[in-house]
Design a protein around this nucleic acid. Structure first.
Lengths: 304, 304
DNA sequence: CTGAACCTGTGCAAAAATTGCACCGCATGG
DNA sequence: CCATGCGGTGCAATTTTTGCACAGGTTCAG
């Protein structure tokens, strides 16, 4: 939009860190860009940049303004999306910040279902740990977040909460597969493949281990859930995952079982959005679909 | 702000109902204005006006856009106000939609107190009935609403609720002044001066009258609370008010007593803002002051 | 049926704004 | 101590916006 040009320019100065660099990015002269910034500050009533010998940086007023700009832009997108929906064909873009566990099966399937009905809608899926996902919402860079055990939950509107029991993952044929649920102590005797500390699964396990007076000593520590799954078959090790990222055991190529409630408390997979924000139509509708899908999942996943 | 010019123009077309009239208001030619509207619609992607033989009217897409425009503008004002607050001196403007009862004493006093500390802050006070006040909030034309017994309460964030017993107002010396609280039936024998149906006091009285099998027959019906107060001294009539609009009896020039709980249920004077909206600094701080002031009022007004 | 009074919309030239170019003063860092 | 990169400015070129004149359509009164 033409009338948002000034905001785009401001934003590009913020990104580039200096007028001259930003001028290149925006196909303008430094002088023209400089004067637009100055003109804006004049109208706005206060400077929004600190002039440093090495470039420009936002001052506190500028930070406030940037927040407004981001909000303004996404709200315009929402309006356009609603208008598009008004005229029949649903178009738009949905951006989701999610945990890795959603990548292999759940999200691809849900997106395919949605796009079968609305081929005009596009998606971006951003893999984020639970803290980053919340920051993504707050900065309007994602519409929805689907994360396991989020940290802060301020500014986070919960649309649906699905309990998830932590599952242990082990190679086929391991003695661990003999009981329907597992005790944590039985797992700890094997080499452990654990996610890093930023993940909810690790957090739940640490709490559980501490409460039975044990310590988690990872043989392999990784931020890739894929690697966890693949490593356990190599060394008769034990990994941990949440079930939404796992196939039913017979198809998985490895065994998995939930850990007993009394050892590891179940975590929650939360679908949420930024508090108070009105989402674009496509995102809101996709959110509704996710709620329905998660709801359908809920009873089946309680360990017997 | 220069970059909001297009929005101002759109808004003035909406107000004026035609490009030509709007062109006069904005000191532009109809042709120039016309082309700016067309250019905007082009960029926006959809027409926002219906072209009628008699002028222009917003279409549904335009209605959505206007909501965005209003929101956008007030949010910019909020940012500017926060920036001003950042630099020390508090400036800004507070707009309040309120019931008549707040006009004689409460609001003038509160505004004076606030302005003694922050002379840079200006106020607009818009007298609205309870339904209009809520609409004012929703359209961002008022920051705060202070109303007796609001109707819908959707989109309304309650900041404070003060119970208010309906008081009967009568000329000095009337036998009604003999007991500390009044029965409704005793009032109904006098000529009645009632507010019109849009007001909460009337609503509460109608409910109460119906439940004791009586009907309210107003001798004078008015939307001026001032007139109610002044008329009762003319004809030995009885009027009704809420106490926040009344002086203590000895100074008032007429008598007033609360009606008994069991006859007329007490109403609530609610201070609120639009749900989810971040107010400008001045409005938010004034809101806090009002909460404190209402809190201080609360216990004293319960009828003994 | 007709003409006046509205309305939106367009071609074109004038006016106003934005921009690019050349250059200044200044701090930094090798 | 000089080269480099920074924000800022005067002025002319360029692009955008505007005003004027007028086209084409609908409504409404007489």
């Amino acid at each position: 939009m033409r009338y948002l040009r000034t905001f785009e320019l401001i934003e590009s100065v913020v990104r580039a860190g200096s007028i001259r660099k930003a001028a290149e990015d925006t196909n303008l002269t430094a002088s023209a860009l400089n004067r637009r910034i100055q003109a804006f500050e004049q109208e706005f009533g206060w400077p929004i940049f600190e002039r440093l010998p090495r470039g420009m940086r936002l001052n506190p007023a500028g930070e406030l303004l940037m927040q407004h700009i981001r909000m303004q832009r996404t709200d315009l997108a929402r309006v356009q999306s609603q208008v598009a929906d008004l005229s029949g064909e649903r178009r738009g873009h949905v951006s989701i910040a999610c945990s890795q566990a959603l990548l292999p099966y759940f999200l691809p399937q849900q997106i395919a279902i949605y796009r079968a009905q609305h081929p005009g809608v596009t998606f971006s899926i951003n893999v984020r740990d639970r803290a980053q996902a919340e920051r993504d919402l707050a900065s309007y860079s994602s519409d929805l977040a689907l994360v396991f055990e989020p940290v802060h939950l301020v500014e986070f509107d919960v649309l649906y909460a699905l309990p998830q029991w932590v599952h242990a993952v082990y190679p086929t044929g391991s003695p661990l597969g003999e009981t329907p649920t597992l005790r944590l102590r039985d797992c700890l005797d094997h080499p452990l493949v654990l996610p890093t500390a930023t993940y909810g699964v690790r957090n739940l396990l640490e709490l559980a281990a501490t409460s039975i007076g044990r310590k988690l000593v990872p043989t392999v520590e990784t931020d890739s859930f894929d690697l966890i799954r693949h490593y356990v078959t190599q060394e008769n090790a034990v990994g941990f995952q949440i079930p939404i990222g796992l196939k039913p055991e017979q198809d998985a190529g490895f065994g998995h079982r939930p850990l007993a409630d009394r050892d590891v408390r179940p975590g929650q997979l939360l679908l949420g959005q930024l508090k108070g924000r009105a989402l674009p139509v496509a995102s809101a509708k996709f959110g509704q679909q996710l709620v329905a899908a998660l709801e359908a999942l809920a009873p089946k996943q309680a360990p017997e």
